[in-house]
Design a protein around this nucleic acid. Structure first.
Lengths: 213, 213
DNA sequence: TTCTTCATGTAATTAGTTACATGATTGA
DNA sequence: TCAATCATGTAACTAATTACATGAAGAA
């Protein structure tokens, strides 16, 4: 029985188990509110991965009972903590972005201006909804009501990135909407203001040089 | 022979074919420099997907000859253009982000401060490298030397987002580095400045309310 | 002659998703 | 008693990746 290798998804579950023991159902809830924003996975994965961790001796499973209903609770082992620490020692991969709406904007010369505006509006609403969730969770912590307050320094670092990411998507969508709104009906006839391109290039060059504001 | 359904990956290739006919090899090059930044896929996919497009009648394949070497060139059909336009009519999915380094920072209380700093430095270098590529491509267009100048309005919109995304990653990594540098050796003993959390929440709330600067 | 790049793929594998299924508990 | 949620999973599928393979052309 060739033991399957551990993936980043495995370690993301292991990381949660390092905080406290979780039942599988609790893990799925946690995926919605935090983990899923940086490492999104389907619910069924959260039922499979912990078994793999057990198989590797990184966690153990206990069947608990709440009334007549049973729940499987996973707990990290000492070996699991060592494996997690070893994983954290590797620098890891940079962000991978899949952005279908951006793809549609990129190919918008094959569609209509109004299609493009609709796509941008969907992006804006996506950003707004995610910002709202971020705000709600953050507000909870400011009120001292968030879970695992001892992990607040780590959570705050991640929340800062995600918050700014959502804001970036929203800002971009609004900026692009203003530009596309001035396009003619057929995007193939659109022209671009050279100063816009220049501004983008300057931002890229500044970031490449690193000093950065 | 149940015809497989078209995915976003299929349409991303179709979108390229709408610009001009491409050989498979050219498609792989294009994946590196533009498409891959918003819809990353392995090279082998680029050899499979065009076949699917042909199967659906959205493209046709021609075997050309360059000397003795053969190359397969794909051209979009009228039906392909209609399919692409129909796809652009749907608003599409919001961004999906997978960020392993962020995950490691999120779980950094299970590792050491220096591990965390190393992860952040890797993120900073990732951002710098990608910003540099962005700057180089953008500079080429400013010099009027970029391919498909007629698509510049669309390209510029996408480039603006990606440029700012790379800058965001870099800015975040540097900001987080400053904070983590002041942590004690054991991140579990770290504390967080409440004003930092408050600033993040305020940014999230502003973005959720939408007005936005 | 040898190395690199051009060029085109296939085979094997896997990570992950979607859909389905079921039963217990809680609250209205 | 009915709906919603808690809770746990499996089966079927597929999109995608990794690894492998090969041969031509051009440059050194």
């Amino acid at each position: 029985m060739a033991r399957s290798t551990l993936t980043t998804t495995s370690y993301s579950i292991l990381g949660l188990l390092a905080v406290k023991p979780w039942s599988t159902y609790e893990l799925t809830k946690q995926m919605d509110r935090s983990l899923g924003r940086m490492w999104p996975r389907a619910t069924s994965k959260l039922y499979e991965e912990p078994k793999k961790l057990v198989e590797h001796g990184l966690a153990r499973a206990d069947d608990e009972r709440v009334g007549k209903r049973s729940r499987r609770v996973y707990t990290i082992t000492a070996k699991g903590r060592r494996a997690l620490a070893a994983w954290l020692r590797e620098p890891g991969e940079g962000p991978v972005l899949e952005f279908e709406q951006l793809l549609k904007v990129f190919f918008s010369d094959s569609g209509s201006r109004d299609d493009t505006l609709a796509t941008l509006d969907a992006a804006r609403r996506w950003a707004q909804a995610n910002s709202a969730t971020s705000a709600a969770v953050g507000r909870q912590y400011l009120d001292g009501a968030g879970p695992f307050p001892e992990r607040e320094p780590q959570r705050a670092l991640a929340a800062a990135f995600l918050t700014d990411f959502y804001a970036l998507v929203g800002d971009w969508a609004r900026w692009a909407t203003e530009i596309v709104a001035r396009w003619p009906d057929d995007p193939k006839q659109a022209t671009v203001d050279p100063s816009v391109v220049e501004a983008v290039v300057r931002r890229a060059e500044a970031a490449a040089k690193d000093g950065s504001p």
